[in-house]
Amino acid sequence: MAHTPVNHPARPIYRAIGGLVGLYFVLFGVLGLIASAGNDVFAQDDTKALGQGTNLGFSLLSILLGAVILFGIVIGRNLDAAINQWLAYVLFVLGLGQLAFLRTDANIFNFSIITVIVVLTLGMVLLMAGMYGKVGTDEEQEAWQKARLVL
């Protein structure tokens, strides 16, 4: 995409921010796994980790999401930018979907309103990290600069 920045000067910072989001998901997942040990996978109870509602299913999903983000960060080469963008969209769908079913039996991940806010916020941060984390050749950077200046 010509409008997505290439070789942004703050790319290392955005990559680190993406890594922190991945670490947060892993940490939250491990703490949620500990807190929900012995419960059903999709239990709807008062289990909380870091102040957010969770259950065994969402804890395992959080560990998986965090591991995928960290895998992309370690590999780099625009794979991190692509993973961050796509997982941000997944987090938006997950957060809004769980918001819609918050007080129903369809709340399979035992979300609370705090969990929805955190997931949507981390999705926005991950999207930002993905959009500004792209690297490319000098020609791609020049094409981005030209497209940016032509409005």
Rank of each mutant, 00 (worst) to 15 (best):
G19P: 01
V21L: 03
V21I: 13
Y24V: 03
F25R: 02
F25G: 03
V26R: 00
L27P: 00
G29N: 05
V30Q: 07
L31Y: 04
L31A: 05
L31S: 03
G32M: 03
N39Q: 15
F42N: 12
F42I: 08
D45G: 14
K48V: 09
A49S: 10
L50P: 02
L50M: 09
Q52G: 00
G53F: 01
T54C: 09
G57N: 05
G57R: 00
F58A: 06
L60F: 09
L61N: 10
I63S: 05
L65R: 00
L65C: 05
G66W: 04
A67F: 08
I69H: 09
L70W: 10
I73T: 08
I73C: 03
N78K: 09
L79Q: 12
L79C: 13
A81S: 15
A82C: 07
I83A: 04
N84Q: 15
N84T: 12
A88M: 10
Y89H: 10
F92N: 07
L94E: 10
L94S: 12
G95W: 05
L96K: 02
Q98F: 13
Q98L: 10
A100V: 04
A100T: 07
F101T: 11
L102H: 09
L102I: 07
R103N: 15
R103H: 15
D105R: 12
A106M: 13
A106Y: 15
N107R: 01
N107K: 02
I108Y: 15
F111I: 00
F111Q: 02
I113Y: 13
I114S: 09
I114H: 05
V116T: 06
I117H: 02
I117L: 09
T121Q: 05
M124V: 13
V125S: 07
L126Y: 11
L127V: 04
M128A: 13
A129S: 15
M131D: 08
M131V: 06
M131Y: 10
Y132V: 01
V135K: 02
T137D: 02
